[in-house]
Design a binder for these strands. Structure first.
Lengths: 178, 178
DNA sequence: AAGCATTATATCGTACTGATAGTATTTTCT
DNA sequence: AGAAAATACTATCAGTACGATATAATGCTT
């Protein structure tokens, strides 16, 4: 899904500024399964406005920088529906951590153990932050999606906790790492 | 992790051509947590060669297109080790499917049910293909990584199977979708 | 024999990331 | 109180990567 459609979808849930869209993909319910940078959000919103899929209202704020609030137009809503009619592509998982594990066989088992333990902590934190999000989530779909995220994080955590020791043992057994 | 480092890492596990690297990230042990296109692999290998991180040998094959086999140099191995010393960034999950669920609240429950069922099938297939990979995997790390992938796929499958019905029910209850 | 998959290299337009810049306020630390 | 850091906002740009496509020979299937 391109950033264009992502913006359309987020605006379908409510008006927002570019900054708020960025916050949602970085920290909100979207944070688990999407990302987008300012460098793609702002140009997308500009183009979407030019093409009539969204409208933009300018707010001069007193004690804050000016704000541009974008709203979906009927044309935009139609375009989104059209986009959602096509089958979603497969999920994509990127993990520098797993890549490092594969590549780092020649690296000290201590370092690997350390890496795994850090990762376990990160999963615990992520679970906590998703559980917090759950309280704010209103729609059934957002509940479903956040709980999906929690389930995934728990599965990763569980796997790491239960297979950590055996990995280290096997790596030590497999090769004398210089 | 950029494609440059990915190439370095894969070449650390054995010599390969650009085509083979692409195959590994698309179908091999790497397929679960990384991706790279020809448009990034070939230029990376060219630059890596120019900079002395890899060497390239040309093979004229009889019944196949010519092949360029790349090998890691000592300098390349050092650069990889250096790269792996830094902490890996957080995992990134992208899911058009979950995005579609969130955005598609106004879409018919039938369509959502359909989407979820398709996804369940895809997870089942993915699990089977990962289990096949497991037979070929040699190193302890690749076993660990593939089993990690299987655990994740199973968790997703499990979640969808167990929460599917309740999602549909809630969506029907929540709003009369026109 | 036609048509598609596989093996292989390579490029190109477009999209996206990550970093950076600018400006103003509130919060936190010492 | 004053400094430092975080928050709130917009925006651009160089570099990087994606996805599609070109090319070309061979093998497999119907």
């Amino acid at each position: 899904m391109d950033v264009r459609t992502l913006c359309l979808g987020i605006l379908a849930l409510g008006d927002a500024s570019g900054y708020e869209i960025k916050k949602m993909v970085a920290e909100g319910s979207f944070s688990f399964f999407s990302e987008a940078s300012y460098g793609s959000i702002y140009p997308s919103l500009t183009r979407l406005t030019e093409e009539g899929f969204v409208t933009c209202e300018f707010f001069s704020q007193d004690k804050r920088p000016d704000k541009k609030i974008y709203s979906l137009t009927e044309k935009g809503r139609l375009a989104l529906t059209e986009e959602l009619r096509r089958d979603p592509g497969p999920d994509k998982n990127r993990s520098e951590f797993l890549a490092a594990l594969l590549f780092a066989e020649a690296v000290s088992p201590d370092r690997i153990q350390n890496l795994v333990e850090e990762r376990i902590d990160e999963h615990r934190m992520k679970i906590r932050s998703l559980q917090k999000l759950l309280d704010e989530a209103m729609s059934p779909a957002s509940h479903f999606v956040i709980n999906y995220g929690i389930a995934m994080q728990k599965a990763a955590l569980d796997y790491l906790e239960h297979h950590q020791a055996s990995l280290i043992k096997k790596i030590i057994a497999a090769g004398p790492t210089e």
